[in-house]
């Protein structure tokens, strides 16, 4: 089963697929995936609404607080995540073209970039924690209400986003195993494609977090 992975082309896989003549509904499952993505969109959307209301209320405090964030780290992480979205579509494209080993390499690159994102995020949060800016931290507690709200929203939204990055990495790992075992293959690549959709949504949310938190001054 493992041997099927690397070099064999599409033609070698197809007879098996034809013999099974499995009943599957790719359009239906893709619809389901998008419906799930909409729930994610509304989950983050709720937080964006809270952000908008408090920014409306505490405009100047939000601008003051945003100076504390490290713009360079936020922008670097944007580049990292955008690049990981590219490597993800290349992984899907390679599998569609029956280049299994290449697909696994692109997926590995995406996983590595996700790690890189979290490491930068960790350094950023550590620096804030060091200055007592942390939910429950003494510095954050002593801030004026608007600035405190900015940092609470910052930790809440980037934290929830970070959890999504972790989940995405877990899914990538399991998909890589299923590609190796042949369960996800050039004739049956929907699972990898949907992992990609999820990953791009994570990227999409970050694209909005960048101007809201890092570019607000």
């Amino acid at each position: 089963m493992h041997a099927e992975g690397g070099t064999l082309g599409a033609a070698a896989v197809s007879p098996a697929a034809a013999a099974h003549h499995e009943h599957r509904d790719d359009i239906g499952s893709k619809t389901g995936m998008w419906l799930f993505l909409f729930t994610e969109l509304l989950l983050f959307g709720g937080l964006f609404i809270i952000y908008a209301v408090y920014r409306h209320k505490y405009g100047t405090e939000f601008h003051e607080a945003a100076h504390e964030l490290n713009k360079a780290m936020g922008v670097t992480n944007t580049f990292v995540l955008l690049t990981s979205s590219l490597t993800m579509v290349l992984a899907v494209g390679a599998l569609q073209r029956a280049r299994v080993a290449e697909s696994l390499r692109w997926l590995g690159a995406t996983f590595g970039l996700a790690c890189c994102f979290l490491v930068i995020k960790f350094l950023e949060w550590s620096a804030k924690h060091h200055h007592g800016i942390w939910p429950g931290g003494e510095h954050l507690h002593a801030m004026p209400p608007g600035e405190g709200m900015f940092f609470n929203l910052y930790f809440m939204m980037t934290g929830l986003h970070g959890i999504h990055v972790l989940v995405g990495m877990g899914v990538m790992g399991s998909i890589a195993a299923r590609i190796r075992s042949g369960h996800v293959s050039p004739s049956r690549y929907a699972a990898l494609e949907f992992t990609g959709l999820y990953w791009h949504l994570v990227d999409l949310v970050w694209i909005f977090l960048l101007p809201l938190f890092y570019l607000t001054n």
């Binding site: 099974h20 003549h21 009943h23 599957r24 790719d26 359009i27 004739s187 690549y189």
Partner: peptide, 26 residues
Amino acid sequence: TGGHAQPAAHGDGHAGDHAAHAPVAT
């Protein structure tokens, strides 16, 4: 090659429609 790789796509009508799409150029 896409058509060749997915005989199942033609087998059960609508089910494999998206699978029959040509991959987007890199």
